[in-house]
Amino acid sequence: MSSFSQSANKIFDEVVAFYHVLDQVDQEGKNPYATDTIDYLLYQKNWIDSVQWHVEDLIREPEIEPSLALSYKRRIDALNQERTDTVERIDDYFLAKFAAVPAKSNRLNTESPAWAIDRLSILALKIYHMAIEAERVDTPIDQQARCKQKLAILLEQREDLSTAIDQLLEELAQGEKQMKVYRQMKMYNDPQLNPVLYQKKA
């Protein structure tokens, strides 16, 4: 039986591979999982990350038209909000999953499971793209070597983070740690809390 992190990494790699078949930021994600499952949320999370990764590349084009850059910036803002919303939905899943677990300790973790999973999702993209850079034959040998070293570190980081996530989930399941979630409460996207937005209405 695979661990949670193994299943998550499999889904993340699946999404990254699917995205790069067309490699277009406007393509449809086609989430194959049932909407009421954690797998659906994991797929959705990495799809958002994959699109945002490539929009972030596009906006750095040196000769980009200002109007196009602004549209990309707006899209990045929207993707960031969607990413945060999805992370919080993943935490909602774990809150429900562990709600009835008797507390054996009041120990807390520095971050919720979903925000650790957020980092795991982004690692899948880093690994995919660094592997490409490590194998490029049109770059200097020393650059290839640096990329191979970075790839090795990223792979080690994924292994360690995966282990840490599985350990955290086990501790939560046993009541050895308590799950406590603080919502991001971002203000800049809220027309009632961003002064630039609400002062326009005054």
Rank of each mutant, 00 (worst) to 15 (best):
M1K: 07
S2D: 15
S5H: 09
S5N: 10
S7C: 05
I11E: 03
F12I: 10
D13K: 10
V16T: 11
Y19V: 05
H20K: 09
K30T: 04
N31E: 11
T37E: 01
L42P: 05
Q44H: 08
V51I: 15
V51Y: 04
W53R: 12
V55P: 00
I59M: 08
R60W: 00
E61D: 15
P62A: 12
L68K: 13
A69T: 05
D77F: 00
Q81P: 00
D85R: 04
F94K: 07
F94H: 08
K97A: 13
S105M: 12
R107T: 13
N109C: 07
T110N: 11
T110E: 12
E111S: 11
E111W: 00
S112G: 14
W115L: 04
I117Q: 04
S121F: 07
Y128G: 06
M130Y: 00
A134C: 06
V137M: 03
V137P: 00
D138K: 03
T139V: 15
T139A: 06
P140W: 00
D142G: 03
Q143I: 05
R146H: 13
C147D: 11
K148L: 04
K150W: 03
L151F: 01
I153F: 09
E156H: 12
R158V: 04
E159C: 04
E159M: 07
T163K: 11
E170N: 12
E170I: 09
L172W: 02
A173P: 10
G175D: 05
K180C: 14
V181G: 12
V181H: 02
Y182I: 14
Y182M: 14
R183F: 01
Q184N: 10
K186C: 10
K186G: 09
Q192A: 15
L193A: 13
N194A: 05
P195W: 14
L197G: 02
Y198E: 12
K200E: 08
K201Q: 15
